[in-house]
Structures are given as C-alpha cells and as structure tokens.
Nucleic acid binder design. Structure first.
Lengths: 231, 231
DNA sequence: TTGAAAAGGTGACAAATATCATATATATTT
DNA sequence: AAATATATATGATATTTGTCACCTTTTCAA
C-alpha cells in the first residue's frame, strides 16, 4: 500500500478538521478507514439512513439534498475535496437528514464513527476545529435561507453561477469546471427545472453566459453580480 | 447578591451547553458575567457587530434575523429560555451574521468570550456539548431551507403555528403563549406581511384559528397539520 | 383623553413562478 | 446505426404571491 493512502500523508486532510488530530489519532483513523470509488449519479448515503461513520471527499463533488413531500429535491450543500460529510449526523447521533449523491466520479474515504467520536471526547483541538467548521456551515445555511426567501429566482441563479466560478473555477476556455445539469441548478436555487432553463437561456441571449456542449461559462461577471444584487 | 444569581445555581444552565462545565469553570463564568434586562423591541446585538461574548437567555424570547438587500428582515431562529445566542460568531471569530431583537421583555446574562473560549480549548465535554447543539441548529436550518423553497406560504404559516404551539405552548384558554405580530410571522415564513394577514384571516374564517385581542389560538390542529403537509 | 403612530385588515392589480404540453437535441443502450 | 431514454428548450396558461392603495382598529405617549 502506497504511503499516500495513509491519512498521515494525505494532503486533503489540511482542508478539514482532521488536521487537528495528533499523529497517534491519525494512525488510528488510517487503520480503520476504507476507500471507496463512487461513480457519477450513485448515492453515498440516503436521507434517514443511520451513518456509522463519516465520508471524507478526496476527489469529485457530491450534492447533499433533502427530498420534500412534493417529490422535489432541494440541494442544501455541495461537498468538495477536503470536506467531510455526515459529521452532523454522527455528532448528533441522529439518522442523516440529507442524501448524498455523486455529481461526478468521486474518491472517498469512509472513517468509522468510533475513530471520530473517540477523538471528539479526548482532543479539544479537534473538537474545536469541527465546531469551527460547523459554525461556518451554519452561517452559510443562514445565508441560503435569506437568499431563498428574499431574492428572485433570477437573482439566485445569477448567484449560483458566481458561486460555481469562485468555488470550482473555470478552464482555459472560460467554462465552469463543475458542470451541473439544469435540474441540479434548479434544485440548488429552489425552483422548477423549466424556470431555470428559461432563465439560463435568457442569460445566454443577453450575453451573460456562453455554452459549449454541456459546459457553461460566464461571459459578463460584472452584470451577473449586478443582477444578483437586484439591479 | 442572591445565590440564584450565580451560574452554579442557575437552573437555566441545564438546558444549554454550560451544563458540561466544571464547577471551577462555572465559577469563572459567573464572576465575569453581567445581567441585562432588555425591553420588548430593543436590540441585543446587530448584524455585522463584533460580539465580545455570548448571551444566555434567562427569560423571554428573541428573534434572530438578517436584513436582506431589499430591506426585508428574515427571521432565522427564535431563541428562548436556556438558549445561548452569539456562540456561532464567537467561535468562528466573525462578526455576527444576525441581529437579535427582543420579542418580549427579556432577562439575559452576558458572558464575555474569554470565559467561553478558554473552556472550549480545555474541556472537551463542553466543546462537544456546544458542537452537539450546533449540529442540531444546523439540521433545523437545513429543514427551514427545504420548507421555504418547497412549501407554499399557506403551508409554512400553518407550520409556524404548529411550531409555536409545540415550542411555547398555550394558556388555559387555548391561546398561544408566544404572541408574534403578523409582521414577525411573515418574517419567519418569508413572505409579505399582507399575504400573512390574509392567510391568517382565512384560517380564522375556516375555523382553524381563533383570536382574542392580540392573542391567537389553534382550534383545529389536525387540519392545520394536513394543510402543512399539503392536503 | 385625545391625537398620532403602529398594527391589522381588505380589495384590485401586477409580477413572478409553476405547470402542462410538446418539440428538439443529446446521450445511452442494444 | 437504430432505438430508447434523458436533458434541454419553449409556448401557453394557471397559480401563487407581492405591491399599492386605502381603511379600521389598537396602542401608546404627550
């Protein structure tokens, strides 16, 4: 087994709470973890499922969503390289309130909850680090609430593209690296797929976005920003 | 100073993370805390403000809200007896993302952040307890996101009344203990005040709610539940 | 106690958004 | 390569919700 398969040597760790673990703790995590490969579209866990551990994202992106009674999926968060999924449920000892599905091909590490919970009770630095990141997630959730309830669909879609650019970047030709389907974008902003498609078409006509195959790119960031702010 | 003014003897503590503090730590908190009386409508802290500590609610209810660019206030959470406000900002070392305003007359304790942060780095039980409660808040925030984006205003208002009943109870005559203005209810569910008033009137006409002065009461819980679920 | 301010209420209308139907393009499977 | 499924697109229409105007009732302070 190559040394990069050990948590101690994993660079991803630097982006999440595991960086606050001691060498000993990391060794324990590394010994108990398993790696998983998940293909685009496959589920990692389902809403209501009891999680026996957390998932550390090494490659790819996962959408964390919740099904509402009317059958629509609301995407609450996108989890990327370095992020840990399922922490909330493990900590609160509740079943998962969200489903996780791979947006593209992914590599994950599954860490059994014992290794995590143990450290949570012993290493305050680690616990604090998890807390700090969760505080950040909570702020983001608050922002989403305000955005959804106060901004128009058009504003939220504009914002979504700005978010995709700033979080996942664009390729050499100026197309967004993370390609989401119109349906996924609709589920992020909380609207009907048709409304989303219509507004994206409008943005393309107005020269704010460009497209090539499945890829979408931002042409006029300034105008998108103005739009998102309500001008 | 009466003994009930000491955190060690405060019953409220049992409802929040402070119950995981040691006697020594509580003494330190108690020595540094100050009590505050806040009248209905007064602000406790504002969005963007740097918080030098947290507020423990001893009596009354506070609304935590965020102003959006169009001038409307979105209430993200109601904080009651036992809850601690401002933790998120202190932990993340960020300015507050929310404003806190008293919904009715309140008694608060202000605990300077040093006493909290110190303990966070030393007592894993306390840190874990804070984490556990924040995990719970995060789940609630996720639920709010899904509700706002997937349910109609009518459903959300029905839900708000069920929430008020189950969280704050009703008096002998069946009126809700916590009386919110129509505007506040509108800001909780994320709608226009007029729309909220209209729907409450409709609920009264249909015999789902009753009113007496400012007070509102639930007459038909079953139907309200059905409505909230979309029937 | 009375007059101003705030909260509650309602109608008319406009705007935003969802829904349904249907068409076309693109991807996937056989 | 044809057949099938899935994603994107767009028009027509219905529904929901917001906005503005105005009125009444309640609250509160001078």
């Amino acid at each position: 087994m190559g040394s990069e398969s050990r948590c101690e040597n994993c660079i991803i760790r630097q982006f999440n709470s595991l960086r606050a673990m001691t060498k000993e703790e990391l060794k324990q995590v590394s010994d108990s973890k398993t790696s998983k490969i998940i293909k685009k579209g496959e589920a990692i866990f389902e809403e209501g499922e009891k999680l026996n551990g957390v998932f550390c994202v090494r490659e790819g992106v996962s959408k964390l969503s919740k099904l509402s009674s009317n059958g629509k999926d609301q995407i609450v968060k996108l989890a990327t390289k370095g992020e840990v999924m399922g922490q909330r449920s493990v900590i609160a000892e509740e079943t998962s309130n969200l489903s996780a599905v791979a947006v593209n091909d992914m590599k994950l590490c599954f860490i059994p909850k014992e290794a995590i919970v143990n450290t949570l009770h012993k290493n305050p630095d680690f616990t604090f680090e998890v807390l700090r990141l969760m505080a950040h997630d909570l702020r983001e959730a608050d922002d989403v609430i305000v955005n959804i309830s106060q901004k128009t669909v058009k504003q939220r879609i504009a914002e979504a593209f700005l978010y995709l650019k700033s979080n996942y970047g664009e390729d050499e030709e100026g197309y967004l690296v993370l390609t989401l389907s119109r349906e996924d974008i609709a589920n992020v902003v909380g609207t009907a797929t048709e409304s989303c498609i219509r507004i994206i078409s409008e943005f393309k006509k107005k020269g704010l976005l460009k497209s090539s195959g499945k890829k979408l790119g931002i042409l006029d960031e300034k105008k998108l920003k103005d739009l998102a702010e309500g001008f």
